[in-house]
């Protein structure tokens, strides 16, 4: 089994017994490296990982995420980020240092149901992920269509050096904000372009593990 660069795996499958470092979605059992999720295994340089085809988003610091406001307290918003944990966006991050819980109304900036582009500022096992919008291109999303795909398939949507997403954006004359949590906001002037971009995202979600998916998406974009 060892030696294959990519293979379809299921939980418990032995990926390799070679001297590799077990990374995401793998576990070391004696000398064997086992897969812990259904997906495609990758042996790269000295490490082994599995790109899962199912499962929720697990936050990591510096990840770019698309979130949806689900509720707020007097000090912060809670954002659904397609994860088992809710994202936590402090009010001071939006209002600035002179934020006052008495004087400022949180709903004046972000109300329930609003979409937000944010970055994970901090996250560990003990508390929910802390989000920030203090960076370029972050903050409330006013327009766009929300699409989603499995978080593990986000690299397939982006493609090698961003080739796939660039092809989609150019062909559909659309802009795609791709969250690492698998949520994608598509904006386009032309409704046909929007639908085409949505179809491309759905194609990648359904067939990311199949050989030549990038080429098939490109041919779909060309033929319409």
């Amino acid at each position: 089994m060892a030696g294959a660069r990519h293979q379809n795996v299921m939980p418990g499958d032995v990926i390799t017994t070679g001297p590799y470092r077990p990374e995401e979605h793998t576990v070391l059992d004696g000398k064997r490296i086992l897969a812990t999720a259904v997906g495609v295994s990758e042996i790269r340089d000295d490490s082994v990982r599995v790109v899962p085809l199912a499962g929720m988003y697990y936050p990591r610091v510096k990840d770019f995420v698309i979130g949806k406001v689900v509720s707020h307290t007097s000090l912060s918003w809670e954002l659904e980020i397609n994860s088992c944990y809710v994202g936590f966006l402090p009010a001071s991050d939006v209002f600035g240092r002179d934020f006052s819980a008495h004087a400022d109304d949180l709903t004046s900036h972000l109300a329930k149901g609003d979409m937000v582009a944010a970055r994970v500022a901090n996250f560990d096992r003990t508390r929910d992920p802390l989000l920030t919008v203090q960076d370029r291109d972050l903050g409330k999303i006013d327009i766009g269509e929300l699409a989603s795909l499995a978080p593990g398939k986000v690299p397939h949507l982006i493609g090698k050096n961003g080739s796939t997403i660039r092809a989609i954006e150019e062909s559909c004359r659309a802009t795609l904000a791709v969250g690492d949590n698998g949520w994608v906001v598509i904006t386009a002037d032309d409704p046909d372009g929007l639908l085409k971009a949505e179809r491309a995202v759905r194609m990648i979600d359904e067939g990311a593990h199949e050989a030549g998916i990038s080429e098939r998406v490109r041919s779909m974009l060309e033929t319409g």
Binding site: N8, L53, I158
Partner: peptide, 17 residues
């Protein structure tokens, strides 16, 4: 395998970024 790989075997793809 039927659910995720369309019944496909172990060959894998190799189309990742």
């Amino acid at each position: 395998a039927d659910r995720f790989f369309g019944g496909g075997g172990k060959e894998g793809s190799g189309d990742g970024a």
